[in-house]
Design a protein around this nucleic acid. Structure first.
Lengths: 191, 191
DNA sequence: CATGAATTTCAGAAATTTCTGAAAATTCAG
DNA sequence: CTGAATTTTCAGAAATTTCTGAAATTCATG
């Protein structure tokens, strides 16, 4: 299993990027390899392709399974485990988002909520809590949006992305139309 | 500068989360501290609050400046550097998004483009390239959306978030209305 | 241009993370 | 149950990252 130069380049890059996240180099490389492969690979294929130890691959695969990023396959008449990634990149994105939220956002939210329950002892604590409340509010808004959007099927999601910032333009126009139909009295708040 | 328990809890949590990203513990803690503080802090304040070495704080602050996450302030008649975070959490979010994109997404995009220029030597490379093209397409869609949305002022952005998945429902309704106005001939594609 | 307050740099120590090889566990066919 | 194929575990080696203290640098001021 000698890697072609193209595959090699991608695998090495993913290794580097991996370390920029929490994921380690080998895990990144294993994932890249599985992602590119047209058929499922077993642990020894990976050992051979990446030149790392068998046990390292075993641990890497375990981590990827914990992230729900790989699928386990069994070929009939073969006791070995084979691994792939899902075909659909959008599905991969959804999984990634879900797992990162679980690991990075949820714990922070719960710490913030915890702290915001307490009441402040002094002015410094009052200010600190106000800051945490701001952060909490921001994260809540983002996760609410995420929860709303994550269930969209791929084509709807693509549609939403394609719309981008124009959505707000649309709403503006709508507001204008509404306000023509319901002209505001002089001095009344601008709604 | 003894930290109050509330602040302490938040700072420690940020330290932990920091290591889950590329950022190290101290950098996370420094940021948390600055974020919560009602007035700018100088390096020695941070040393005292966190109990780490002066040089470590210096390096941490440098990293945070590289991320554009802190602001440098100078008090009149004081030669020391003082640091704060921006007041607006939405602005912080924008900066964070921008910097992470720069560090994590852009390099990947450029590697992908590089590889997709080459032409495949065999069937395996052809398949690998197709996979990379899928990933490239996905990232392009996401970054296009991001580029579109990142310029929105905070209230528009909040509006867009509030709308969430309902956007697509809106489009559906619009499509329905349009198709009533322009009934499709039998056998014609559903547009 | 000397002084001293403040900051930065950097070599190496300390801590942490990653990786390996050997041993243990698991699984299944015979 | 035995034994071969496969996977997992884990103690410690190797590599990497983080942190420190001491020295170097910067720079406003007398």
């Amino acid at each position: 299993m000698k890697l072609s130069p193209l595959t090699q380049a991608f695998v090495l890059h993913f290794g580097e990027m991996g370390s920029r996240w929490g994921i380690n180099r080998t895990v990144g490389q294993i994932y890249a390899l599985l992602y590119l492969s047209s058929e499922p690979l077993c642990a020894d294929d990976i050992v051979e392709s990446l030149g790392v130890s068998r046990s390292n691959v075993s641990m890497g695969l375990r981590e990827l399974q914990a992230w729900n990023l790989v699928l386990l396959k069994h070929l009939p008449g073969d006791r070995r485990d084979f691994f792939t990634t899902p075909d659909d990149v959008w599905q991969i994105l959804r999984t990634l988002a879900e797992e990162r939220k679980k690991r990075e956002v949820d714990p922070t939210l719960s710490v913030l909520r915890e702290i915001l329950m307490q009441n402040p002892a002094d002015e410094a604590e009052r200010h600190a809590q106000a800051r945490m409340a701001e952060m909490h509010g921001l994260i809540e808004q983002l996760t609410t949006w995420y929860d709303d959007v994550k269930t969209l099927e791929t084509d709807r999601l693509a549609m939403l992305l394609g719309l981008g910032a124009r959505v707000t333009k649309l709403l503006e126009v709508k507001d204008k139309i509404v306000s023509i139909g319901r002209p505001r009295r002089p001095g009344a708040p601008a709604s």
